[in-house]
């Protein structure tokens, strides 16, 4: 492929045009590497932007008070920085979302991959893409003005339900995540070789038995990866929690109550114009760092599982 010749006998030495082409080649390659490094730089910048204020935050607030405390009131006097109420809020909302998204997403994936006729698939898939394309602020508005007053308030049996509820936010967030869950698990299911299904049918298995006893175990690692990514997405989702779950730090197990998530804390605190050197400003970064760390671990775990399952069938 390289046009350069070493033997001087025949003049295959690069002409001016060839040398120019080689130079262009090098410049282009360097340029492309430059664009590729932007994404690496982004990660570096995220880590740096989080790190410095977070370190400064922990100079003023002890690590024990942050991770051990159950009172979250960073904007009050005296301020208190126990992170558990907003972690608890995040866990409750995420838990509900995952309880909706995983069974529902898996069901749709099974239907698309094992049951639906090609014509139904051709219609259903773009409709699911439509669901995936709806902005999260729209889901948040729907949770606030429809699900909270018309479903949660009416049917949730425990305690009084206010305008906001973790349940309404979680339910809508779950539906929002269904397309992600579906597309990743369906990828895993269609990667299962057809011969396995045929073997199952030949042994007399019904479609359900092939789905649950052949396809499901074979696609399990992909489904696990999809679930992990769904959890990560729910933890990081801001607008639905901010609009519909409320903004009161509230360490409670009753999902009918209003709760603040970590993302909602960041979103609502950053709305005001906070001075750079204040503890409130640094608190945003400390919570952001926690959020980034948790989702980072989940994303990498998911990527690893996906990689392993790809190697199994290709």
């Amino acid at each position: 492929m390289a046009p350069a010749a070493t033997t001087p006998v025949v003049t295959l030495r690069p002409t001016g045009a060839v040398r120019r082409r080689q130079r262009v080649e090098q410049v282009v390659k360097a340029g492309l590497l430059g664009t590729a490094s932007v994404s690496v730089l982004t990660t570096v910048l995220i880590v740096f932007s989080l790190l410095q204020p977070t370190v400064e935050f922990f100079r003023e607030v002890s690590v024990g008070a942050f991770f051990g405390g159950t009172d979250w009131a960073p904007n009050f006097q005296p301020a208190s920085f126990g992170v558990w109420p907003i972690v608890g809020g995040t866990l409750v909302v995420t838990g509900i979302a995952v309880l909706v998204a995983v069974p529902c997403g898996l069901g749709v994936a099974f239907y698309l991959s094992e049951y639906a006729r090609p014509r139904v698939r051709r219609v259903l898939k773009p409709v699911l893409e439509l669901l995936a394309g709806i902005p999260t602020v729209v889901f948040g508005f729907f949770a606030l003005t429809f699900v909270n007053p018309k479903l949660v308030d009416r049917f949730w049996p425990i305690g009084d339900v206010s305008t906001f509820s973790a349940l309404g936010a979680g339910l809508v967030m779950g539906v929002m995540i269904v397309p992600i869950m579906t597309s990743l698990s369906e990828d895993a299911m269609s990667a299962v070789p057809e011969s396995l299904r045929q073997a199952g049918v030949a042994l007399g298995a019904t479609r359900r038995e092939v789905s649950t006893k052949v396809v499901f175990p074979a696609a399990l690692s992909g489904i696990v990866a999809a679930t992990v990514l769904a959890v990560s997405r729910a933890i990081g989702e801001t607008m639905i929690a901010l609009l519909a779950a409320g903004n009161r730090p509230n360490l409670s197990a009753n999902p009918g109550e209003d709760m603040q998530t970590m993302t909602a804390y960041i979103g609502s605190t950053a709305l005001g114009d906070i001075a750079t050197q204040t503890i409130q400003y640094k608190t945003i970064f400390a919570v952001g760092a926690l959020l980034f760390a948790v989702t980072f671990v989940l994303n990498i775990a998911s990527a690893r599982v996906v990689r392993r399952f790809r190697q199994a069938y290709e």
């Binding site: 982004t42 995220i46 989080l50 204020p53 997405r233 993302t263 960041i266 945003i284 952001g288 994303n299």
Partner: peptide, 16 residues
């Protein structure tokens, strides 16, 4: 990983 980082974290990067 970047594709799955919560968008609000990008907001923090933008702010800082």
């Amino acid at each position: 990983n970047l594709a799955a980082v919560p968008s609000i974290v990008y907001g923090i990067l933008g702010l800082a």
